[in-house]
Structure formats: structure tokens, C-alpha cells
Amino acid sequence: MTGSHQPRPGEGRLSAGSPRPGPNDRQGGEGGQPHASASLPPAGQITATAARTRTADGKGAVRRAGGPGSPPSLVNASIVTTVGTLIWVGLLWLALAAIFGIVLGIVAVAGSLDSSLWQSGFSGWQRIVMFAAGYTMTSAFGPILIGNGVTRSRLAGAATVTMVVLALVGGLFVALGYTLEGLVFSALDWPQELRGGQRVDGISDIVRLGFAHVGLFTCYFAAGRLVGIARGALGPDEFVLLIPPALIPPAVAELFLIHDLAGLPLIGQVNLDWVPSSWAVGLLVSLAAAAVATVIAHPASRAITLPIGRQPG
């Protein structure tokens, strides 16, 4: 060919299922040339192979992402963000559970406890893990999804799904920890008390703690997500200004769930009698705060810029 390589209508032979044509194409670049091309397959041969594979069963290639013209589904995007998060968070939790078992065993043999080891050493800081997980929705999964043709809007939807799943699984994990600890403490006749003096007594308390952590984790995840979006949209400097408002949801959760979690050192320090003691109210308020953050996050996600070079102005 001596002219420019213009596409020619009707030449989509692969899509028509016919083998790759043109012996010239097949021999291109070979023919005794001194280059390594002698070991190459004929030109476009593997394109033809793929086409034959695709058309042999008459069903077309595997297209789990949807048809050629349709964008990836929310389910697929959510699988990426949720499984991708659960991989590292799950590994962390597994390690944590193992360490907790070892420490609990050592303490059971060598000493005694009068308050929850699970709360003070293991479950309390999981809120930070949730914050980090929320942040990675933009910093880690943003480039992966947007770089593969997923819109920011869909990324936002997937992040919301991940938030819900992770909070539920996290709440379950915390509840399981309290259950295991309760069994051991009960066998050793130790009191299983939280930092604020609340006693964990029976399955109902454990369920309450699990749900409280669902609310707490949702808020921390939402906050981390907002911070990630702010950084993705504004760059590494300006986003700092938006950190304080982004932290409102976890602050709300800490406040309204303080009677159940006693997670912050505020209890006993300031007058919090006005805070409703009902864990259901605390959970609802927390979820409402997370919902507001999520509503803000969806349109804000549209401003995310992928970290290629510097941030645009």
C-alpha cells in the first residue's frame, strides 16, 4: 500500500467471522529479512485466532462487563471496590483476630482483666481503618475504574455499596470479637466491661454493640471518602481546608453513640447528659450523617481528576 492507511468499509472481516485474509499481510515483514520478525506469527494471525474463537460457538466473546456499547454495570464496579477493599481489610482483621487470640490466651494464663481487651486494644481503632478504606475509594480505586472507562458517577455508586458492605461486615467482626471475649471472660469469671463502665451482658448487648459499630464505621468511611474526593478534585494542598467539614459525620457518630461505644475519652470529662442514650437513636443519627455525606460525595465525585502529572487549575 502506498497511500495512507484509510479504513475501508466492508473490511471488517473479523467481525464477519471469516479468517484473516491476505497472504501479503500474513507474510509482511518476513520474507528473509534479517530481523527477528522471522519468528513472528503472520501479520494479524492472532487477531484471526481470537475471531475464530469468538465466533466458533456463535455466542461471541466473553463480555462480562456488558455489551460492547454498554458501560460497566454498578455490580461489576462494586465488585472491584468491595472485593478490593475486603482483601486488605480482611487480611488485617485476620491478623488482628490471631493476635487477639494470642494475647487473650497469654493474659488468661498469666493474669486477669476487669475490662474489655477487645475494645481497648483491637476494635476501637477499626474506625481509622474504615476512614482509610473510604479514602482509597478515590486514591486507589479512582484511577483503576476511571482509567478503565468507568464514570466517576458509577465510581461513587460503587463506593456507596462498599461503604454499606464494609460497615456491616465490620460490625459483625466487632460483634464476633466481643462474643469470643465474652465466652473467655465468662469462663474465667472476669467482668466484661467497656471503658465507660458499661457491662457487656448477653447477646443483646453484643448485637447493640455490633449495630453501633455499623453506624460508626459508616460515618468514618464516609468521612474518608469525602477527604479522598476533596484531594482528588482540589489537589494535594487545597483539599486540607475541607478536612474539618468532612469529619463532621464521625464526630456526630462518636457523640450520639458514646453511651454504647465509650470510644472517645470525652465520657466523664464533659457534660453529655443531653445526648440521647438510646442506641437506636444514635444509630439512626449516625446513618443520617453518613447519608448526607454520601449525597454530597456523589456530585462532588464528578470533579475528580486522575493523578496524571500535576493537578489542573
Partner: peptide, 30 residues
């Protein structure tokens, strides 16, 4: 792709297959 560096090539392809509607697995294998 911006994937984690610890991801294997196979996992990279599985990830893309989830996200890219036009991904041709047979062609990728070839």
C-alpha cells in the same frame, strides 16, 4: 491501570474483564 504492583497479570485481566465492555478475552489470551 494504576493497579497495585502486587497484582498478577492474570488478576489484571480479570479486573479489566469486569470493567471493559469490549474486552476480548480470546484475543487477550492470544
Amino acid at each position: 491501570l494504576a493497579v497495585d504492583e502486587s497484582t498478577t497479570i492474570r488478576e489484571v485481566f480479570e479486573l479489566i474483564e469486569l470493567l471493559r465492555p469490549g474486552w476480548d478475552k480470546a484475543y487477550a489470551d492470544a
